[in-house]
């Protein structure tokens, strides 16, 4: 049997999440197909075909798919299920919205947020906000999984010797019950949280939206992404798309620098798999220090500019 990956893209490039999902899929040790839906995706299909490690690229190109909705994609993907033992998506907004819709149409449950592939039907996944890890066995004929990308890595790049076969699907478009109204994406020249090597996060102690410039300056010197705790987001200092934690983004960069973050359980669940954690807080009792490799008990308003000056 084969594995099918549902690709995510921004019309020009495959998302990093999709390549990491490919890395996870390779652990299943069977041929991998990739499904890409969108409008004007000829080049994307060719790019995917040359990634390496992919057997076949299925493209569904239609002008109405410029904005891909789960309502439209799920029935088409579910119809492919007889050819696949596994359907994998990243645990991104896109994957979380779509995977269960596919699974229900296949008459199965999905396994969400896989962090470890033990075998072709056993997986580990976090439950209770990461405070427990469940090992589950999936007995479904067609397994639908979402992959927590912070727990896997993209395959080491070996471009395909010869490009994978591209199959263009020709499918009639069903009636659309959802209409796109608008999208507001935070524009930033900084790295994305999901793929950043270094993340600098600020908490409530940063104190205001204006004070967050300290965090931005430091991050920019480091070439780092900026994150925040839920407390900082709820206080309106920073946009909610930058929230790190169980209810926000789950990240695992090489270095995570927590500034003025006390370390609530729900925040720790979102960053505790980072390789190196650095914490700066004026409260020596802050729980963040219990997970930090390096701690500095200091006033962030003095420490952060001093650190920035060091770079």
């Amino acid at each position: 049997m084969k594995t099918l990956i549902i690709a995510e893209h921004n019309q020009h490039d495959l998302k990093a999440d999709t390549l990491v999902t490919l890395g996870a899929a390779q652990q299943l040790g069977q041929p991998i197909d990739v499904f890409i839906a969108g409008h004007d995706i000829g080049q994307l299909g060719q790019d995917a075909a040359s990634v390496g490690g992919i057997d076949q690229v299925l493209t569904w190109d239609h002008e109405a798919l410029a904005m891909s909705f789960s309502e439209t994609l799920a029935p088409v993907i579910a119809n492919l299920r007889s050819q696949y033992s596994h359907i994998l998506l990243a645990s991104s907004s896109f994957g979380k919205d779509l995977a269960p819709r596919i699974a229900a149409l296949c008459g199965v449950n999905a396994v969400s947020d896989v962090i470890d592939i033990i075998s072709a039907n056993q997986y580990k996944r976090p439950i209770y906000a990461g405070n427990a890890i469940a090992t589950v066995q999936n007995n479904a004929a067609c397994q639908v999984l979402t992959i927590r990308t912070s727990a896997f890595s993209a395959p080491s790049h070996e471009p395909a010797a010869s490009p994978a076969h591209i199959q263009a699907l020709s499918i009639e478009l069903p009636d659309m019950s959802v209409r796109f109204v608008e999208q507001t994406l935070s524009e930033s020249s900084r790295p994305e949280l999901n793929s950043a090597d270094i993340i600098v996060s600020g908490g409530r102690a940063v104190g205001s939206e204006a004070n967050f410039s300290l965090i931005y300056d430091f991050a920019d010197k480091l070439g780092a992404a900026v994150g925040a705790s839920r407390a900082a987001v709820d206080a309106g200092y920073i946009g909610n798309d930058l929230q790190v934690g169980q209810t926000g983004k789950v990240v695992a960069p090489s270095v995570y620098i927590a500034i003025g973050i006390s370390g609530a359980i729900q925040h720790l669940a979102g960053m505790k798999d980072s390789k190196v954690i650095v914490a700066i807080n004026n409260d020596p009792e802050a729980p963040i220090f219990s997970v930090a490799d390096y701690g500095l008990v200091a006033d962030l308003f003095e420490a952060v500019p001093a650190m920035t000056a060091h770079l």
């Binding site: 909705f69 991104s92 907004s93 896109f94 019950s177 959802v178 209409r179 796109f180 109204v181 608008e182 999208q183 507001t184 994406l185 935070s186 994305e192 999901n194 946009g239 798309d241 983004k249």
Partner: peptide, 9 residues
């Protein structure tokens, strides 16, 4: 991811 998306259903 990355912001807000408004849809009409």
């Amino acid at each position: 991811d990355g912001g807000l998306l408004t849809v009409e259903m």
